[in-house]
Nucleic acid binder design. Structure first.
Length: 391
DNA sequence: GATCCACGGGAATACACGGATG
DNA sequence: CATCCGTGTATTCCCGTGGATC
């Protein structure tokens, strides 16, 4: 963080002692520029990317590892730096090389969560490559694709596309993306990122390398928490011991750990404390269901879905005890019909955003209803939702 | 006028249960 | 006893429509 940001944060305090300085810095959906303690994995990725430094494209690759192991964090940081570096050194290369000036490829990071359709995917890649933003509608998928061909085909400089969160529910399937790439010019490589190892066919047909990441070790996760805390909350508000408790609870999952820390900090603030206590941690972990899906999936949902989810959290137990009842209540405060809310609720649970728990038979008639339970960090979602002031 | 995508709405299907039937 | 049937819900599936954008 730069000095100006530090000063601005102090200014915001308005004389009030404030525990939380920057929600964004704590959020499990944001990543830091310098990943903490990731030397070995960065080396492996740089080995894979090595051809880049000779002006060549690396082969396709597949990075996989459990949720919260830092896959997105590492790749976004790496790509940001690589792009920065290659633009900086371009003039130098021109003067220092022989026949052909090795130009670096462009590094594009695409989140599959935000590109659920073929159109959206091509749009995202093209958008990263050209100055002017391509139109979001009124233009066919085929047109978009041929423009992409035009841009890539006419350039010696290739592109490396990292496609993150591959294979998650609600996104295009692994094979679908492989097909999309098959339609691109040959100077495009991909780095796929997903939880599970690549399928055998994808690996053998398209991938030269499969790179595995392991979950965070306890001590490193503590470091991650302390680093985030130093950016996001007041000094000394997070003790080492408390951070260790959170790390133990999270069991190597940085996403869950950060979500719990976020919730704990929020709870401490609500109670007017200037440091996070273990009671706050209890409240923080309480608001992180386990298993917990990535908050990134929730905030990538269309606005109306998020609105429905937000309302769902406001319902009390018996209003939430059936999809029917919940739909009726929610449609009162959201500008959608009951039928649509119901369909959305079913779709959300189908995608694992919520979980349906069927009631054990009580009143006899018909198929028993299901209660809806959130599978994402509720406190963090509520806070971020409020900050964005969607309504 | 073209295009994408979220919405609406409803039809089709699945499920739970109790009672009837063979 | 095993199976089928009717009733009432829950859940899934599908597709046309319209808003937004260019």
């Amino acid at each position: 963080m730069d000095l100006e940001a530090r000063i601005r944060r102090r200014q915001r305090r308005d004389g009030e002692p404030r525990l939380i300085l920057d929600y964004e810095a704590l959020s499990p959906t944001s990543h830091v520029e310098e990943p903490v303690n990731r030397g070995p994995i960065l080396e492996r990725l740089l080995n894979y990317l090595d051809p880049v430094f000779d002006g060549k494209l690396p082969p396709n690759a597949y990075l996989h590892g459990p949720k919260g192991s830092g896959k997105s964090a590492v790749v976004t940081a790496l790509f940001t730096h690589l792009n920065r570096l290659s633009t900086e050194r371009r003039p130098v290369i021109y003067t220092s090389t022989r026949v052909q000036s090795p130009m670096s490829p462009v590094f594009v990071y695409v989140d599959a969560r935000r590109t659920p359709s073929e159109f959206a995917f091509y749009h995202a890649v093209l958008d990263a490559l050209v100055e002017e933003r391509p139109p979001k509608s009124g233009i066919g998928t085929g047109t978009l694709k041929s423009r992409l061909h035009g841009v890539l085909g006419g350039s010696r400089v290739g592109v490396v596309v990292a496609i993150d969160h591959l294979g998650e529910p609600g996104t295009l399937a692994e094979e679908a993306f492989v097909d999309l790439f098959a339609g691109l010019p040959s100077n495009a490589s991909w780095l796929a990122i997903g939880r599970s190892p690549p399928s055998e066919t994808v690996l053998t047909t398209y991938t030269a390398e499969s790179i595995r990441m392991e979950a965070y070790q306890r001590q490193i996760l503590v470091d991650v928490l302390m680093t985030r805390a130093s950016n996001g909350i007041a000094q000394r508000a997070l003790s080492h011991g408390v951070a260790r408790d959170i790390a133990d609870w999270a069991d190597g999952d940085a996403h869950d750990a950060l979500a719990a820390l976020f919730g704990a900090a929020d709870e401490a603030t609500a109670n007017d404390r200037d440091a996070i206590t273990s009671a706050d941690v209890d409240a923080g972990t309480e608001a992180v269901p386990r298993p917990c899906i990535s908050l990134g999936r929730v905030v990538a949902l269309p606005a109306n879905r998020q609105r429905v989810l937000r309302r769902l959290l406001d319902l009390d137990v018996d209003e939430r005890s059936s999809v029917q009842a919940a739909s009726e209540r929610i449609s009162e405060t959201v500008d959608l019909s009951t039928a649509t809310v119901k369909r959305i609720l079913y779709e959300l649970s189908e995608d694992g955003i919520t979980r349906r728990v069927t009631a054990e038979r009580v009143d006899g008639k018909g198929r028993p209803p299901s209660r809806l339970e959130p599978c994402f960090p509720t406190a963090v979602f509520e806070r971020l939702y409020a900050l964005n002031r969607r309504d």
